[in-house]
Design a protein around this nucleic acid. Structure first.
Length: 486
DNA sequence: TTTTGAGTTGTTCGA
DNA sequence: GTCGAACAACTCAAA
C-alpha cells in the first residue's frame, strides 16, 4: 500500500562531493525516508571553469566508484550532460521530486548560478536543501575583530579553529529507497572522460579514486605517516605526505572527516600532537584559499595584490614549453614537471620550486603556470590552485618577501639529498654522482661521460643562469613596486 | 585612533 | 663547513 506522499522522491545532486559518508545533501535526502534519486550532471558550460583533463580522468573513476557504492545500497547514480538549470527542474518533474538537495560549491560564480536554480525550483514548487560538505566553515563566517575578511593566514586559522563547532560526523546511509521508475541515465563510458589516442594516463597508477580509496588513504596516512610528517613532508622521494588532495578535491572525503581522524589519533597518541597541528594547517590553507576566493572571485585571473599589476612578464613561448616539458636543465624542476605529466600529481615541495622557477627565473606570468597545473593535476582545486600560485608568485594575499627566490640546486641538495627523486623522474641522470646531480653542468666531463650524460643532447643545459635570473627577478619586482608607488 | 608585533615553506654573504 | 645577519618595506590584525 502506497500513500500519495510515497510517490514523491528526493533528488540529490552530486558535484565535488562524491561520497556518501558525512555528506549533508545525502544525509538530508536519506532522512526524509523517501525514494532518493542521485544525479551527476556533466556541465558543458559551467559558470566558472571546466575541470582539466587530468581531473576528468579522476572524475571518470570516481563516478564509477560512486555508482557502485550506490548500487550496493540498492540505488543508482543517474548521469546527465548539459545545463543543470534545464536538467534538474526537468528531472524533478520526471521523478515527482518535491525536494532537491546539494552541497554548496563556494565558488562565487557557481553560487550565483545555484541561486538561480534555487529560484527556478521554488517557482515549480520544489523545495531546495543546501548543505556544506566542502569546508569546515563557510568562508564568510570567519571574520576579524573589525568584521572584515582575513588576508593573512595565521590569524585566519587561529580564529577559524577557535570558533569551529564540534559537530558529529553524519554516517553514510545504510539503505536508500529506490523510486518506482528510474529515470534515464547516460552511460559513463559514452562521456569519454578517459583519454585515448593517446592515452596519457598510463602512469596514473598510485591512485584509487572513490570514497573507499579516500578512506583507505586517510587511514594509512594517520596510522603510518603522521608520526614523521613534520620532517618527511619536505622530502619528495619519500611517502611522507597524505596524498589526500585529489580525494579532497572531488569530495570523496571531507575536511571534517580528515579533522576527526587526525584529532582522534593525536588524542590517542599525544606525541602526534605537533605533527597533527602541522598537517591540519594544510587543511587550514585549503579553507583559507576558499576564504580568499570568496573575497576575490577572479582569484585565478587577477592579482590579489593589485599594486603588482605592473609586473613586466615576459612572453617566452619557448621557455614556457621547456618548463612544461621538464626541459629547463635544472633537475629538480624537470623532475617535478615530469612527475606531474606522468602521474597527474606533484609533491608540494617541488610545486613550490617549479612555480618559483616559472615566475621568478623565467619571469613568465603565473597565470600560465596556473592553467597548466589546472589541466595536469588530478587534484586541481578552484581555490587552492590559484591561491597557491598567487602565493608563489608573490602577488597573493600574505605574500612571501619578494627576495625569497628558490634556488633549485640548493632545494635539491636540501630536500633530495641522495637524488632519489631526481633519478626516478630523470632516469637519464641516474648514473651521475650525487654531488653533481642537482647541477649537472658543474660536473667535470669525465663524470658526465662515466654517467652517460651528454649535456645539450641527452639532458639540456640550463635555459637560464640562476644568478642572472635571480637578479632580473628582483629588478622586475622592484620596478613594479616603484611604478605602483608613483 | 594609534601603536605594536608579526607575517608557511629562503638565499646569500661574510666572518 | 657553519653561523648569523641582511635582504625592504608594508600591510594586516589585535590591543
Amino acid at each position: 500500500m502506497t500513500s500519495a506522499a510515497d510517490a514523491s522522491s528526493v533528488l540529490v545532486w552530486f558535484r565535488r562531493d562524491l561520497r556518501l559518508a558525512d555528506n549533508p545533501a545525502v544525509h538530508a535526502a536519506a532522512q526524509t525516508g523517501r525514494p532518493v534519486v542521485a544525479v551527476f550532471v556533466l556541465e558543458d558550460h559551467p559558470p566558472s571553469r571546466a575541470p582539466g583533463a587530468a581531473s576528468l580522468w579522476w572524475l571518470d573513476r570516481s563516478l564509477a566508484a560512486l555508482g557502485e557504492d550506490l548500487a550496493a545500497l540498492g540505488s543508482r547514480l543517474i548521469l546527465r550532460r548539459g545545463d543543470p538549470l534545464a536538467i534538474l527542474p526537468a528531472l524533478a518533474r520526471e521523478t515527482g521530486a518535491e525536494l532537491v538537495c546539494w552541497n554548496r560549491s563556494f565558488e562565487p560564480l557557481v553560487e550565483q548560478r545555484d541561486e538561480e536554480l534555487s529560484d527556478l525550483l521554488h517557482h515549480h514548487d520544489v523545495k531546495v536543501g543546501v548543505g556544506n560538505g566542502l569546508l569546515l566553515q563557510a568562508p564568510w563566517t570567519v571574520r576579524s575583530g573589525s568584521d572584515t575578511p582575513y588576508k593573512v593566514f595565521t590569524p585566519y586559522w587561529r580564529m577559524a579553529q577557535n570558533q569551529l563547532a564540534a559537530a558529529p560526523l553524519r554516517p553514510a546511509p545504510k539503505t536508500l529507497r529506490a523510486p518506482k521508475h528510474w529515470p534515464d541515465s547516460d552511460r559513463l563510458a559514452d562521456w569519454e572522460l578517459h583519454p585515448r589516442d593517446p592515452d596519457w594516463s598510463t602512469g596514473f597508477v598510485d591512485w584509487t579514486p572513490g570514497e573507499a580509496g579516500a578512506a583507505a588513504q586517510l587511514q594509512r596516512f594517520v596510522a603510518q605517516a603522521l608520526e614523521t610528517y613534520a620532517e618527511a613532508r619536505d622530502r619528495p622521494a619519500r611517502d611522507g605526505v597524505s596524498r589526500l588532495s585529489p580525494h579532497l578535491a572531488w569530495g570523496e572525503v571531507g575536511p571534517r572527516q580528515v579533522l576527526a581522524a587526525v584529532r582522534k589519533a593525536a588524542q590517542t597518541h599525544p606525541s602526534l600532537a605537533e605533527a597533527a597541528d602541522k598537517f591540519l594547517a594544510e587543511i587550514g590553507w585549503r579553507e583559507f584559499n576558499y576564504h580568499l576566493l570568496d573575497q576575490q572571485p577572479g582569484l585565478a585571473t587577477r592579482n590579489f595584490r593589485r599594486d603588482l599589476d605592473g609586473l613586466d612578464w615576459r612572453r617566452d613561448a619557448k621557455r614556457l614549453a621547456a618548463w612544461k616539458r621538464g626541459e629547463t636543465g635544472y633537475p629538480l624542476v624537470d623532475a617535478g614537471m615530469r612527475q606531474l605529466w606522468a602521474t597527474g600529481w606533484m609533491h608540494n615541495r617541488v610545486r613550490m620550486v617549479t612555480a618559483s622557477f616559472l615566475v621568478k627565473h623565467l619571469l613568465i606570468d603565473w597565470r600560465e603556470g596556473e592553467r597548466w597545473f589546472w589541466d595536469c593535476l588530478v587534484d586541481a582545486d578552484p581555490a587552492n590552485n590559484p591561491g597557491n600560485w598567487q602565493w608563489s608568485a608573490g602577488v597573493g594575499a600574505d605574500a612571501q618577501p619578494f627576495f625569497r627566490i628558490f634556488n633549485p640546486m640548493t632545494q635539491g641538495e636540501k630536500f633530495d639529498p641522495d637524488g632519489a627523486y631526481v633519478r626516478r623522474w630523470l632516469p637519464v641522470l641516474d648514473q651521475l654522482e650525487t654531488r653533481y646531480l642537482h647541477a649537472p653542468w658543474t660536473a667535470p666531463p669525465e663524470a658526465l661521460r662515466a654517467a652517460g650524460v651528454r649535456l645539450g643532447e641527452t639532458y639540456p643545459r640550463p635555459i637560464v643562469d640562476h644568478a642572472e635570473a635571480r637578479a632580473r627577478a628582483l629588478d622586475a619586482l622592484k620596478a613594479a613596486k616603484t611604478e605602483a608607488a608613483e
